[in-house]
Design a protein around this nucleic acid. Structure first.
Length: 304
DNA sequence: GAGAGGTCTTGTCCGCCGTT
DNA sequence: AACGGCGGACAAGACCTCTC
């Protein structure tokens, strides 16, 4: 479509033309538009130049529209009404009809914690909405949120995401996991025994230190990690078939203890709890669809 | 990115002119 | 004479471009 004519016609000229068609008088059109008669006269001159037509001619007490002006009346009125409607209507999000796709960046553990409740809610209220979970890479997460590749990141408190908005989703604590019938672990796990065992360690980001080691160090103790993995899901299987001990988020321990021959134990030293937050870019603050998603995240009953 | 300076757009004022 | 449209002069502000 060639927009050359549209490009040099501004909306105010079209509004003036519409008012003239309605009033058939420069003075009354001016009053309707809230400008002086002269301003409408200037606008009419511009319209005449651009359209190459007189548009209105003086005829006994009124400005009579030419055939060209009359031909424009209908489409102009229709177009302006559609535009008005589009500008007035606030963008809406109808979960029942939406086919929007939301992308959440998170770990497999948080995905496992959050997804069941979230998916159930979507099936019920928003059957057309799609949910995609992608890995929360520590580098580039802020950028992915900024450019809109990711709608929200579900991660622990993280300094690198300072400019983003966030909301706490749930608190999490640590537990220990060993296999049923582990020969070295009795009813209660002592700190001495804990340090004597070989450990499995989950490092989702592949970097940094575990929370456990500095706390052991404070006490003049240490432990030996013989299995390191970036994925939450792999470690419990290893623990179920070995004498390794795993210190991990309690939800993970409980989840796998339901399906595998595993025991969940209280850690022999106090480990600081942490929280999982939903982070998003401020640009989504007022977006109805995003607000709806955030409301679902905030009100869902997550796996405990 | 901020500021300066030139240009363009828009609207008012006001006098002129044609019609009734 | 009154009314209403036309258009030139002007002002204000928006916009654009250039320079630092």
């Amino acid at each position: 479509m060639d927009h050359a004519l549209l490009a040099r016609t501004n909306l105010n000229l079209l509004l003036t033309l519409d008012a003239l068609l309605e009033e058939r008088s420069v003075t009354r059109a001016a009053a309707r538009l809230g400008v002086t008669q002269s301003a409408v006269s200037h606008a009419l001159r511009q319209l005449r130049e651009q359209l190459g037509d007189r548009l209105f001619v003086r005829a006994r007490g009124a400005m009579a529209p030419t055939p060209r002006a009359l031909a424009l009346a209908g489409p102009l009125r229709q177009g302006l009404r559609a535009l008005q409607q589009a500008l007035e209507d606030a963008p809406e999000f109808d979960p029942a009809r939406s086919r929007r796709r939301f992308v959440l960046a998170t770990t497999d553990l948080v995905a496992a914690t959050v997804s069941p409740a979230l998916v159930a809610r979507l099936r019920e209220e928003a059957p057309g909405v799609e949910l995609e979970i992608v890995p929360a890479e520590s580098t580039g997460l802020g950028e992915a949120l900024e450019v809109g590749e990711v709608d929200a990141a579900l991660v622990p408190a993280y300094e690198g995401l300072g400019a983003l908005e966030r909301r706490k989703l749930f608190d999490e604590t640590f537990s220990c996991l060993v296999r049923e019938g582990h020969p070295g672990v009795g009813r209660r796990l002592t700190l001495k025994r804990y340090c004597a065992l070989d450990h499995a360690l989950i490092r989702p980001t592949g970097e940094g230190q575990s929370v456990v080691d500095p706390l052991l160090e404070e006490r003049g103790l240490s432990r030996r990690v013989t299995y390191r993995v970036r994925y939450f899901a792999a470690a419990p299987f290893v623990v179920a078939r070995s004498d390794l001990i795993l210190t991990a988020p309690t939800r993970l321990c409980r989840l796998f203890a339901e399906a595998l021959p595993l025991r969940v134990l209280k850690p022999p030293l106090p480990l600081p709890p942490f929280a999982i937050y939903a982070y998003w870019h401020p640009r989504w603050r007022a977006d109805p669809g995003h607000r709806w998603l955030r409301a679902q995240l905030a009100s869902a009953h997550f796996t405990r």
